[in-house]
Design a protein around this nucleic acid. Sequence first.
DNA 1: GTAGGGTTAG
Length: 643
Amino acid sequence: MNNTSYHCLSLLTSCKNLKTLKQIHASLVKIGLNSEPFIAGKLILHCAVTISDVLDYACRFFLHFPNPDVFMHNTLIRGFSESSTPQNSIFTFIDMRRKSMVPPDSFSFAFVLKAAANYGSLRAGIQLHCQALIHGLDIHLFVGTTLISMYGECGSVYFAKKAFEQMLEPNVVAWNAIVTACFRCGDVNGARKMFDMMPFTNSTSSNVMLAGFAKAGALELAKKMFWEMKVKDDVSWSTMIVGFAHNASFGEAFGYFRELQRVGLRPNEVSLTGVLSACAQAGAFEFGKIFHGYIEKSGFNWITAVNNALVDMYARCGNMEMARLVFESMPYKKSVVSWTSMIEGLAMHGYAEEAIQVFHEMEGSGIRPDWITFIAILYACSHAGLIEQGCSYFSKMKNVFNIEPKIEHYGCMVDLYGRAGYLQKAYDFVCQMPISPNAIIWRTLLGACSIHGNVELAEQVKERLSELEPNDSGDIVLLSNIYAVAGKWKDVATVRRSMTAQKIKKTPGWSMIEVDRTMYSFVAGEKSKKTTAEAYEKLKEIMLRLRVEGGYVPEVASVFHDVEEEEKEDSVFKHSEKLAVAFGISRLCKGRDIRIVKNLRICRDCHTVMKLISKVYGLKVVVRDRSRFHLFNDGSCSCKDYW
DNA sequence: GTAGGGTTAG
């Protein structure tokens, strides 16, 4: 290789964006080096892997290259395997087998199997396994390990174990892979068995177990193992903290975070994202701000993942100004997660237009939206009643971005039509879906029937739901409420009786509020706690003032059963968000916003009460319910009563 | 010149 080639190579490696890359490519063409296999390989490696989102360019270059070698094929296969269209990785592999004279090597299989795993296609995985067998590469150590992981990710623990058994000399990585595969397929006992049989011990293997237990929700097992571990590295601690956050054990997430510092370790970026996720879910705004301060001080604000967690935390704590500030001052390139978090945050707050604008900015910045971005944008449209725009994004996703809609996207579309009152259209849409609808899809439609009081359709939908998940308390309560609003008390009674007979309990509603850096939770109808008693006292006073000054009339139409008016009032009076807001008014300093997080959807009556409180008491109330944010200010809500 | 197992946000 001559000096010019070396010069071109070093230019390539330092190149960071498509514009410079195009310039280098042009000069390569000029001096005739673009057909040099080694240089061409490096060029394609750069487009397909190193610089993000220039895969199209890599592909075009590849297609025009006379006889691409195995390296170039592998690189393109690798680039597609991590993209939002892993199928293209498999197509490239097939093309290589059909058209090219170069046989695949162990790298080809490692990459293309990863694509099958990312695509979640067991069928493709098995066919590729056969191909590997034909080439005698199925027993290759790296290929074998990738086979195990692929089968695990495609949900077949049986094939994963088979692939493991066929390995000649499995090393520690292969053992860890089979344990992870068992966990991924929900085979916790299998994972434990394999772990006990392992001829190696290192801390990675134990961390595999911790992560597996935590993901399976077996926190007690994870804790037991964690405390028995002689060497706990920072991954062990981070794994526990993230595990707690995922399982809604927020107190323990914070506790372990403190403890890791107490034993003399420093928090790393993963443990920080863990505690931020706990803050985000619990709506712990004050805690979140403290962690933010720590992140700034200790220099973790350079890490994209940490910033993304901050954006999400602020958004879920109802502070979009701070979310935006973090988002806009991110030092490194924003990732697709950064953009999506921002879009979702805006959408949750009902700022649909802004969410759409950020989506366009994202397109302009060259970051390709992925399937979750589309969920966020469809959610924004459905919650703002932007039906035409929602439909156009849905088709754009398929036609422009080549992203195959998943069941979640179909769910958004059902919500889009249903919420806006096009119930028949929503129903037809469900019937024509190419994927068979799951319980969530039908439940979305049932929710729409509830909003628009369509009893007939609700009954049909509930029947479908009963086939899939017969004992879901939420569905039964929803149907009963639909009957109640329609005044069909006989049907309400029948539903209630069957619920009692089958011993189905209603999911208790809870609300949380942060006062003086302490989280207080309230449960509907609960009377035992001291804080609850305090809240009840204050609530009585508030309701009286709302009646006198705000002209409040209780909205009790959806109350569960046909009882006297006074009793109905009493029933909505007990809702946890009312207790939380009363507690906030009683404890928080004047002028402070009240922020509440609730696990279920806010009811119509509570919604009215919050609006009146914001007017009569002259304060801002922010309620994050199961599906979105409500910002109550001066007598109205940011959701414009559309939720 | 490219690869496999553990924790990272939406």
